[in-house]
Simulated scan of single mutants.
Amino acid sequence: MIHLCVHLSREAIFAGPVQYQWMYAFERYIHILKGYVRNKARPEGSIAEGYIDNEALTFCSMYFNEGETKFNKPEWNYDGPIKATQDGNIFVFKQKVRGIRVAINDVLNLKDLKKARWYVLNNCDEVQPYVRQYMDELERQGLRNVQEMLESEFHTWFLKYVSAIKF
């Protein structure tokens, strides 16, 4: 493989940027075509039949309304429409969630748990006014590390604040 480095510079000069000589897309498609082979005595005919079958099924599936095809299949991690809440509950806690992989029961350490809580609360649009309110309180106290305090202590302040509010 060291000898390959000798020729790489010359190949780059001759062929130009790597995207013009990159064969990955073709190799990938050849792999798909090889998957169509059913009769090893006549691979070309099998590939042609498989390609025609795939094209015909793809064309027909564009017009099927019932059943799941690659044109009307929901996205892999789509959980359905998100419904707005009118009962005063925070939007992020009303979403349906479906795991992508097998669940792993693991205990987070306190540092990771605080980061997870901060991430969820910080990315919820309904909580942003409370984040600003808590940030203003910290700035009024004259603290220097407002962002660190916000990330580490906001979830406890928010829990106390929301528990005190009567909905």
Rank of each mutant, 00 (worst) to 15 (best):
V120F: 12
A25G: 03
I2F: 11
H155Y: 10
S9V: 10
E151S: 12
N123R: 10
E75C: 07
D53E: 02
Q141D: 09
E151L: 05
L159T: 03
K111G: 08
T69Q: 02
E49C: 06
K73N: 11
L8N: 05
N145Q: 05
D87K: 08
E148P: 01
R42F: 02
Y63M: 02
E126F: 06
H155R: 04
K34S: 14
V127K: 02
E75H: 01
S46C: 09
L57Y: 03
M1Q: 05
L121S: 08
H155D: 07
K83S: 12
P129K: 04
K111N: 13
F158C: 03
L108F: 10
N89F: 00
Q95R: 08
I2Y: 01
V107A: 11
R101T: 03
I90G: 05
K115E: 06
L33D: 01
L33T: 03
E153T: 00
R98S: 04
D125S: 11
L8W: 14
T58I: 07
Q133T: 12
Q147L: 12
G35S: 15
L113I: 14
R101Y: 14
N54H: 02
E66K: 10
E55I: 05
F167I: 08
A12E: 14
D106N: 09
I32A: 11
G50S: 00
R140T: 05
G88F: 10
W157L: 01
R117Y: 05
E137R: 14
W22C: 06
G45P: 08
K83F: 15
Y119Q: 02
Y51I: 00
R10C: 07
N89Y: 00
R38H: 05
N122D: 14
Y51V: 01
I47F: 04
G80T: 01
L8I: 06
A103N: 03
I104N: 07
I165K: 10
I100W: 15
S163A: 10
K166T: 01
I32M: 06
L159R: 02
E137G: 13
V6C: 04
A41V: 08
G35R: 00
W118F: 04
Y161D: 13
V18I: 06
